Simulated scan of single mutants.
Amino acid sequence: MGLLAHERYCDEIVSGTDALRAAVRGADLDATVPTCPDWTLRELAVHVGGGHRWAGEIVRTRAREALPDERVPAFTPEGDDPAVLDAWLADGAARTAETLREAGPGLEVWSWYGPDRSAGFWARRMAIETVVHRADASLAAKVAYAASPDLAADTIDEWLEIVACAQADGDPEAAELRGAGRSLHLHATDVPDAEWLIELGEDGFTWRHAHARATVALRGPLTDLMLVFNRRLAPDSDRVELLGDAELLDFWLARSSFG
Results as ranks from 00 to 15, higher is better:
Val191Asp: 05
Arg213Lys: 09
Arg182Ser: 11
Trp159Tyr: 13
Glu158Arg: 04
Pro149Asp: 09
Arg219Cys: 11
Phe229Arg: 04
Ala214Pro: 09
Gly204Ser: 00
Ala180Gly: 10
Ala217Leu: 09
Leu184Trp: 09
His211Pro: 07
Phe205Glu: 08
Leu160Gln: 07
Thr206Gln: 11
Ala146Asp: 12
Gly220Thr: 08
His209Thr: 15
His209Tyr: 03
Arg231Gln: 13
Glu195Gln: 12
Asp224Ser: 14
Val163Tyr: 00
Arg178Tyr: 01
Gly220Phe: 07
Ala210Phe: 10
Ile162Lys: 05
Gly201Ala: 11
Ala212Ser: 11
Asp157Thr: 03
Asp224Pro: 05
Val163Cys: 03
Leu218Cys: 07
Leu200Asp: 04
Ala180Pro: 02
Pro221Ser: 05
Leu177Thr: 00
Glu176Phe: 02
Gly204Ile: 04
Ala166His: 00
Phe229Gly: 08
Glu199Arg: 15
Val163Pro: 00
Gly201Leu: 11
Asp169Thr: 08
Val228Lys: 07
Ser183Thr: 07
Arg213Ser: 14
Gly204Asn: 00
Ser148Gly: 15
Asp169Trp: 13
Ala164Ser: 03
Ser183Trp: 05
Gly220Pro: 04
Val191Tyr: 10
Ala152Thr: 04
Leu233Tyr: 07
Thr215Asn: 05
Asp150Leu: 08
His211Ile: 13
Leu218Pro: 01
Leu186Lys: 07
Val216Asn: 03
Gly220Tyr: 02
Val191Ser: 03
Leu233Asp: 12
Ser148Met: 12
Leu184Glu: 06
Pro149His: 09
Gly181Pro: 01
Asn230Arg: 14
Leu225Phe: 07
Ala166Asn: 04
Leu177Ser: 01
Pro172Arg: 08
Thr206Ser: 15
Thr155Ile: 04
Trp207Arg: 12
Arg231Val: 13
Leu177Gln: 02
Cys165Pro: 00
Ala210Ser: 14
Ala188Glu: 10
Asp193Asn: 14
Leu218Arg: 10
Glu195Tyr: 02
Thr155Phe: 00
Glu158Met: 01
Ala214Thr: 14
Phe205Ser: 06
Pro172Ile: 12
Gln167Ile: 03
Asp193Leu: 13
Met226Ile: 01
Trp159Leu: 14
Glu161Thr: 07
Ala210Pro: 03
Leu197Phe: 09
Asp169Gly: 09
